[in-house]
Design a protein around this nucleic acid. Structure first.
Lengths: 226, 226
DNA sequence: ATTCAGTTTAACTAAATGGTTAGCTGAACC
DNA sequence: GGTTCAGCTAACCATTTAGTTAAACTGAAT
């Protein structure tokens, strides 16, 4: 029992959650083991006892999140018929992963920034599988003619970039808003699901084959405000 | 003379360049002052003498880059008539800034990840001006009817996100490619100018008003490969 | 020769960091 | 009663870190 409990008073769980927030906020090198232990209300030695050193801590958090994302993507796309459905399901699932693990987007952005220099190989390989899922949907659409011939790598980076920045951009947007006193509400402030829809809408608009009849288009309605 | 020289043997210039690379690679907290001094081939005390402490170093680098970007955006958009021209010029200029200051995209991604927590106010304000430039183009297009009614904040985050990730994604793409042995070439591996065009193409496709005649569309041609 | 601002250096400090150790506790088990 | 053992703690350690100091060098003006 002691090994598998997932409740909030499981010290291991607490450590991982606190560490994820710390890594997201300050990066791997900026996060402080002492501070993580303190915030998780455990003695520092317990952190090493329950999880391992800083590298293991980091790898564990990333793997946990990515495995979760992969499992959900597989489940969500199992019944997808069209490429559009598949792309929307995949992107929505990634966005939902970011919602449930709020450290996900910041960590990915940091890894992008450092070129994955600190990414353990095991994590790298699973990340590639996530990338592959998006690319599969794109290539399926290209093959079937549902999408126009498209550069899958560039399009994937495009989707990943806009999605991650929209998801992680909340705090910085809030800071800018303070300076500009523009109290408007934007799609960017909506739920991850809405953000995923927005990204898919714009991208699908670009992926549609040139001659596709208008009637086929389906746009997720999103209230617009001035 | 000694104060304003910009050549490579100006120690201040060398320090700033090396530090920019270090901050981009490891983040503010991960970058090491000793290492920066060593790589710039100056005594550490010289770094403090010529530039200042780590915060000043960071702020100087960011401000330098952003001021440069702002000046170039102003110059590039001065003659823009249509909103599309203006948007393309702005985005292309930002991409070109990233080309000329290779640390720019990673630094921005990191700041996004941390919510701008470590951004000095002065930098924050100038960044806002860059954001404003993109948003101005979007709002001009919406007002003139050139673009459909669009969420300027979300669209801007969309553009910034895809652009930054495409620009900074080279190294991680290379690492993934090693694992997947997919030696394909993608738009993502082209020049910043091509990347900017690609982003603008996809976004403009989404911004086009629904009833716009096909003839008005202009797509930058980009070789497609399988 | 002296002065003097600008520049450079090696050596230093105080604090923080990641990681370890030896030992305590209390329940389970014989 | 004694042993075991996962869970836990306080104190410690070696190293690294950002930042400082005081002394010295340089080269031109006086």
């Amino acid at each position: 029992m002691a090994r598998t409990q997932k409740s909030a008073d499981d010290p291991r769980r607490r450590i991982l959650d606190v560490a994820a927030a710390a890594f997201a906020a300050s990066g791997f090198e900026g996060a402080r083991v002492d501070q993580i232990a303190k915030r998780a209300a455990v003695n520092k030695a317990m952190l090493y006892y329950h999880v391992g050193d800083k590298d293991v801590l980091y790898e564990t958090i990333l793997l946990e999140t990515i495995e979760d994302a992969l499992a959900r993507i597989a489940a969500a796309t199992a019944s997808s018929k069209t490429a559009e459905d598949r792309l929307r399901s995949t992107v929505a699932t990634i966005a939902d992963t970011a919602r449930r693990h709020s450290h996900f987007a910041p960590l990915m952005l940091r890894e992008l920034a450092s070129g994955g220099a600190t990414l353990p190989d095991r994590v790298m390989q699973r990340m590639r599988d996530v990338f592959q899922a998006v690319r599969d949907a794109l290539e399926q659409g290209t093959r079937s003619g549902e999408f126009r011939a498209v550069d899958p790598v560039a399009t994937h980076m495009f989707i990943a970039g806009s999605l991650l920045v929209l998801l992680a951009g909340g705090p910085i947007r809030r800071r800018i808003r303070q300076l500009t006193d523009v109290p408007k509400v934007s799609v960017a402030d909506r739920s991850p699901a809405d953000i995923a829809s927005f990204v898919c809408d714009v991208v699908l608009e670009g992926l549609r084959p040139p001659a596709a009849p208008r009637a086929l288009r389906r746009r997720t309605p999103l209230k617009k405000k001035n």
